[in-house]
């Protein structure tokens, strides 16, 4: 496309935060909007598979929907001798068995699809079926923006398989901006594990600080590079600044608390599309990360 530059480096940035509602989606949609005009072969990837809502901000059409499946066991009660070995092998308590009453049941919601029960069974009584756990939806806008969302099916326990599949679907892209799920447990880990750099978004409140510390501790154990954006600056107190200073963590930017931004965002508008200053700010943050942490010798 004309006007875009071919990237000589690849980079995956995850926008994350321990606390929900700090502005992850605002920043990821705006940063992607700012950079996609210039950088070819970029994508916005929404990894918040429990509540994906990045797509709400774009007028995009669905190009492809990939089904994500997990294997769950089906027990053939004609062959089953109720020995209980599959139950013993299952680390997730997903097989319920009362041998004297010849009762055996698979609790599909608890199954992680590891396949241990099939290996355990010596009587060929377990076959596996595919069950849908979610979708990876690929979208494109009229002007060629690539958007991908991981969307877990309601009632499913873990979004991890869908997040993994979403990562795979964007492996041909040079620039990936990821909107991460909140928290610091498995959905967060599965998202940031693929990132070259993590932007942690927080707000200057006691809750924001407490959750930021938790995120920082997790990223440290993962040996990830990261920096912090303080959103709604001006609200709350200054303890988060003291923390960043004492831990020597880079403050990438502050976004002031602004009712106009909140209103734009609440109506589903990409803030950077309406605010040139913020657009320039996100471009600047991206480029400084790109220059320092982009993977040169781009093989893709």
């Amino acid at each position: 496309m004309e006007g875009k530059i071919l990237t000589d480096k690849s980079l995956k940035i995850a926008i994350a935060s321990g606390k929900g509602g700090t502005g992850k989606t605002l920043i990821s949609t705006s940063m992607f909007y700012a950079i996609q005009e210039k950088y070819e072969n970029s994508v916005l990837l929404d990894c918040d598979a429990e509540e994906p809502n990045s797509l709400l901000f774009f007028d995009a059409s669905l190009k492809e929907s990939l089904k994500v499946v997990q294997k769950v066991p089906v027990i053939d009660t004609d062959k089953c001798v109720y020995c209980g070995k599959c139950h013993d092998y299952c680390e997730y308590n997903a097989i319920f068995i009362i041998p004297p009453s010849r009762i055996i049941k698979v609790i599909e919601e608890l199954c992680h699809g590891c396949g241990a029960c099939s290996v355990a069974c010596e009587y060929d009584a377990i076959i596996e079926k595919d069950t849908e756990v979610g979708r990876v939806n690929l979208f494109v806008t009229d002007n060629g923006m690539n958007l991908v969302e991981a969307r877990m099916k309601s009632g499913v326990m873990s979004p991890v398989p869908v997040i993994k599949a979403a990562h795979k679907s964007t492996s041909d892209k040079d620039i990936v901006i990821m909107d991460s799920p909140p928290g610091t447990s498995c959905p967060f880990i599965q998202t940031v594990v693929e990132a070259d750099y993590v932007i942690l978004v927080t707000e200057p409140t006691p809750f924001g600080l407490s959750d930021l510390k938790q995120s920082v501790n997790t990223l440290k154990t993962m040996h990830k590079q990261y920096g912090v954006v303080i959103n709604r600056a001006g609200l709350g107190d200054t303890k988060v600044y003291d923390y960043l200073k004492s831990e020597n963590i880079e403050l990438l930017a502050e976004i002031p608390f602004d009712k106009e931004i909140a209103i734009l965002y609440s109506t589903g508008k990409i803030v950077a599309a309406h605010d040139d200053n913020l657009k320039a700010l996100f471009m600047k943050i991206f480029e400084s990360i790109y220059n320092s942490y982009g993977n040169s010798g781009n093989q893709r």
Partner: peptide, 20 residues
């Protein structure tokens, strides 16, 4: 919930779960 497009989208997903 909160009165925004994202809030409404997430509310629907949550109510789907509590309904089930």
């Amino acid at each position: 919930t909160e009165p925004s497009l994202s809030g409404m989208h997430d509310l629907k997903r949550t109510l789907e779960l509590t309904n089930s």
